[in-house]
């Protein structure tokens, strides 16, 4: 461990805000890049599903 205490780790000798904001932002960007395709896929499945149901209506009536 390079730091004596947890609070020293957080403040980073006065550079804490700079360091932590960079890491936080990186996390946000990585999360966004990872999650955005999932959202787009769900939207596609919803819209395409609706489109397919419109095109071939169910044979049997329930």
């Amino acid at each position: 461990m390079n730091f004596e205490s947890f609070s020293a780790f957080l403040t980073m000798g006065g550079h804490g805000p700079y360091v932590w904001s960079c890491y936080g932002l990186t996390l946000l960007v990585l999360l966004f890049n990872g999650l955005a395709p999932g959202r787009r896929k769900r939207r596609f499945l919803r819209e395409q599903g609706a489109r397919q149901r419109r095109q071939e209506p169910p044979q049997e009536h329930t």
Partner: peptide
């Protein structure tokens, strides 16, 4: 990079940004 690496002798702890930048 954040916790174990030693601080840079010139830049102090701000150099830890290197590991994402």
């Amino acid at each position: 990079g954040l916790a174990l690496a030693p601080a840079d002798y010139l830049q102090g702890n701000s150099f830890r940004i290197i590991y994402v930048h």
